[in-house]
Design a protein around this nucleic acid. Structure first.
Lengths: 270, 270
DNA sequence: CGCACCATTGATATGGATCAATAACTGTGG
DNA sequence: CCACAGTTATTGATCCATATCAATGGTGCG
């Protein structure tokens, strides 16, 4: 990364950090840089560089040694695993402002997952060695990483849960619900952020099953058309909510919220 | 924890740490205390206390706020999740020397998993607040935690992979293989560390399927009798190995190892 | 000895995968 | 702007792996 690029990047970060302080708008993966001194930020960024990778490229193979932490400035990515006979599992689907290989760097040894662009991408790449050194030198940074990795872990647990004890309708419904909440719980229109077949794989089902499941969901006040999802009412997906997710929903506790403790006393009703 | 107990515990830790330096015997979860100053150790332990909990007790409910990090001094534990209709998924099965709620403490909010003893247990409990504070004050400790959590995350990824694209035989075979390697790759006798029905649940299958799968595996030079597993030869389970796991096997690279690069050139053969 | 609990075995049911054909969409070049 | 090729999504028919249901057999404990 050139001196100039570093400066621009830092400026942007600082601006956003100030923004985050005043408003409640916390952009997700800025957690990585949260609360860092200018100095620490400099150390991280001065050894980093940017890279553009076009859509559909394998950024990193499962089994490679991870040399960098990737921060997505632009574009979308999936991380995946392959079985010996070529079957693929999508572990994460991620976009702008998210990081990957953040956890892998601390696992030691080869990466258990591969990563692939699904759109043209621009990355900020921070060398793994720098990240490890800085984690050791700056406990604020280490704590930021801890927060990120535990969040990934939590998501992974939910994924295990979802694949093991939920049926396709519940999985898809829950996925849509989370998109809905991410988009702001009042927004009734959602554009699917990935190809259907990718989401299907991520949810542990085939594209055929995904398609059929979509038809089921259409009967529930939700319409899907050309990758556009339109909810008849804001509560259409509440059926798929759980107490944990409810906490992140702006309508949690409102009169119509089925999870709300006021409505059933204990968060385990329904 | 009383002054006395602290001292005994620290003495024991120090002894083990010295042991770990000289031999290659790295007991798993001592990672938590690895490389900490006496001072840091004191801080952590002086606010800790011990607790005994009998078999079958729910230590912590899914949805509770985690108040402590648990270190298992004695006994066995499972962490689990429940669906709204009562179905259970076992996330981890763990024993002596392992920790839990380590990651959850940094997730913020309620615990996404519950924990239950499966045997009589004795725990060292370190208050969550102490852990968080110490992570911030001692980057060595933070890095230890990072290592632990990323390891959990990796296991979770493998679990997702396993449930999604492996059949019951492969799952069970892989589980046995890992036990075998943990026990020292030359040990041909393994005692199942948990009840079959628990392992079954952990592997995402019913007890019935587990039982039938066991019969399949018996045809492959592995015998199981009353929770005792006996391998005809040390390579009986190699069929279920993958390049990643091979690295942790003492026989990796030997003539008969099917993963060894010498035998196929690239670690993707078979 | 008898009661629980757990594991095993057999019979049956079923959800989702697979296979196969068609349809809709995307982008490209004339 | 349309025609065409390539990709992605949908729909229908069939199959199969694993869950479920039900009965039996062990094992340990009071």
């Amino acid at each position: 990364m050139t001196e100039k690029a570093v400066e621009v990047f830092i400026e942007d970060l600082v601006r956003r950090r100030k923004l985050a302080e005043t408003s409640k708008n916390d952009e997700k993966s800025h957690i990585l840089f949260q609360g860092l001194s200018e100095n620490s930020l400099q150390t991280l960024l001065s050894s980093s560089h940017m890279k553009e990778i076009s859509a559909g490229q394998q950024i990193l193979q499962q089994g490679d040694t991870p040399e960098n932490l990737y921060y997505i400035l632009e574009g979308k990515v999936k991380t995946q695993r392959f079985s010996l006979d070529g079957a693929e599992v999508t572990i994460r689907l991620l976009g702008k402002g998210e990081t990957f290989m953040d956890a892998v760097i601390f696992m030691g040894g080869k990466s258990p997952v591969g990563a692939q662009t699904t759109e043209d991408c621009r990355f900020l790449m921070i060398p793994a060695e720098t990240v490890r050194r800085q984690a050791f030198n700056d406990s604020q940074f280490a704590c930021n990483l801890l927060q990120i990795v535990t969040r990934h872990y939590k998501t992974a647990i939910q994924q295990i849960d979802s694949i093991t004890i939920k049926n396709p309708i519940e999985r898809l419904g829950y996925y849509f619900l989370k998109l809905h909440i991410e988009n702001g719980s009042n927004n009734m229109d959602i554009t699917l952020p990935f190809k259907k077949s990718m989401i299907a794989n991520h949810l542990g089902m085939t594209p055929e099953t995904f398609s059929r499941t979509l038809n089921q969901i259409k009967k529930m006040n939700v319409n899907i058309n050309q990758g556009k999802l339109t909810m008849r009412d804001a509560y259409a997906l509440c059926h798929f909510c759980d107490p944990d997710t409810a906490n992140t929903c702006s309508r949690f506790g409102s009169e119509d919220c089925p999870i709300s403790e006021d409505n059933c006393g204990g968060g385990k009703c329904h």
